[in-house]
């Protein structure tokens, strides 16, 4: 009979069969998940472990960061990246001076240290600047292109005189009207918000432009056109340009403003009213009295 007890030593040599352990290990090694784990997981884990152990020491970590900072600084301070000049284009001398004051850069400075977006925002906050673009030109020049606001009106607002552009945005202040006689005058509260409308009215007022003294915003809703010699046209709230054109047509046909008219009231366009001067009215009345003998 075959011996029932296994004799380990004797069997090992001649038995080609794998032991149960080696059989199971081989099957485990052939399992797809285990195979993947060995080809990718174990190397990754080893690298991660090495990294963790290396950087667990604080002194070593600091040394690495110091080295990184140094290398970074060395690259940033290279001659190729240095900015030495600032050139401002499209701005008046006064605005350019303002911009230079606003951006206090002590050249040379590395282009890595320039925050162009923040600088652009800063330049845009200036009232006189409509649009600004910044770039660092090769050769170490910080190039600032500015589109300046064009003043269109002089606005007398309370005590001060402001220059505003066509959209009503303030550009700058002036000391006396005499400085900018080329620009029409606006006054009244809220005139800046209606600057676009004022622009149209001025454009329509071409024939009487030489006599025009300015526009007055009344009650923040409608315009008065003030001419010299105290003459005034009251324009309606709606369609003021058409009303003005109506008045101008009458003026052209009948020389309205050459007469003793002091006020043309167009507030209700279907019912225009004309006021004449006090003396003229009295003269007219006397003429009527003498001619007709009655009012």
């Amino acid at each position: 009979m075959r011996p029932l007890k296994r004799r380990r030593r004797a069997q090992r040599g001649s038995d080609p069969a794998p032991s149960r352990l080696s059989y199971r290990l081989q099957r485990l090694a052939l399992t797809p998940a285990v195979r993947r784990g060995f080809t990718f997981g174990v190397p990754l884990a080893a690298i991660a472990l090495m990294g963790t152990l290396t950087f667990a020491d604080e002194a070593r970590r600091d040394r690495l960061f110091a080295w990184i900072d140094e290398a970074r600084a060395k690259i940033e301070s290279r001659e190729e990246f240095m900015v030495r000049l600032m050139s401002i284009e499209g701005a008046s001398d006064r605005l350019a001076a303002d911009i230079r004051e606003l951006l206090p850069l002590d050249f040379p400075v590395s282009s890595f240290d320039l925050d162009l977006a923040a600088m652009q925002d800063a330049v845009r906050t200036l009232e006189a600047v409509e649009e600004a673009s910044l770039r660092v030109r090769p050769g170490g020049v910080l190039d600032i292109r500015v589109t300046e606001r064009v003043p269109t009106f002089v606005w007398r607002s309370g005590e001060e005189l402001l220059l505003i552009d066509a959209t009503g945005h303030p550009v700058t202040t002036i000391d006396a009207r005499i400085e900018r006689t080329d620009l029409p005058l606006l006054s009244g509260i809220g005139a800046d918000r209606a600057a676009a409308e004022a622009n149209e009215i001025i454009r329509a007022a071409g024939p009487i432009l030489t006599r025009l003294r300015g526009l007055v915003r009344i009650g923040e809703r409608r315009w008065d056109v003030v001419l010299d010699e105290g003459q005034k046209i009251r324009l309606p709230e709606l369609r003021p340009v058409q009303a003005l054109e109506q008045v101008l047509a009458v003026d052209e046909a009948q020389d309205l403003f050459a007469r003793d008219v002091i006020l043309v009231d167009m507030r209700v366009p279907r019912r225009p009213t004309v006021r004449i001067r006090q003396e003229a009215a009295e003269t007219l009345r006397q003429v009527k009295m003498t001619e007709l003998g009655d009012d």
Partner: peptide, 24 residues
């Protein structure tokens, strides 16, 4: 007839075939 012996023979065959196929 002898379970353990047969089991070992099956293990031999299966292990070699798996080794050739590289598949479990």
């Amino acid at each position: 007839e002898a379970m353990h012996e047969t089991e070992r023979a099956i293990r031999t065959a299966v292990q070699n075939a798996q080794k050739m196929a590289q598949v479990r």
